[in-house]
Amino acid sequence: MTATQFAPAAMPNPTDQQRAVDRVAEAAHRLNEAVQRAIAAGYSVELVRTSRHHDGAGNWGDQIVPTVRPNGAAKSA
């Protein structure tokens, strides 16, 4: 019987920018799943931009908070 030999797999070495994009994408995916679970539980969910974060070098991003209402609750204007 021959011994099985394993070779280490080459691991990707993403850039700092790619890691940042991946973190945002993963968080957005988790948020979308949470919204779907809330809807399935009988809630309405609205994501509202509360601010825009700037780094002073031309980069920016929207920051949000969820507004969650039970089924049948009236939306305030």
Rank of each mutant, 00 (worst) to 15 (best):
M1V: 14
T4D: 12
T4I: 12
T4R: 15
Q5R: 12
A7E: 12
A10T: 14
M11H: 08
P12S: 14
N13F: 04
N13D: 09
N13A: 10
A20K: 10
V21M: 02
V21P: 00
V24F: 08
V24M: 07
A25V: 02
A25G: 04
E26P: 00
A28I: 03
H29N: 10
H29F: 10
R30V: 11
R30N: 14
R30G: 06
L31C: 08
A34W: 03
V35K: 02
V35Q: 01
Q36M: 09
R37S: 07
A38R: 01
A40M: 11
V45D: 00
V45T: 01
E46F: 04
L47Q: 09
V48T: 11
R49Y: 03
S51I: 07
R52L: 14
R52F: 05
R52A: 09
H53V: 07
H54P: 00
H54C: 08
D55K: 11
G56L: 01
G56S: 04
A57I: 10
G58V: 06
G58R: 04
G58W: 02
G58C: 08
N59L: 09
W60G: 08
W60Q: 12
D62V: 05
Q63V: 13
Q63N: 12
Q63S: 12
V65L: 11
P66H: 07
V68Q: 08
R69Q: 05
N71E: 08
G72H: 06
A74F: 05
S76W: 04
S76E: 08
A77S: 15
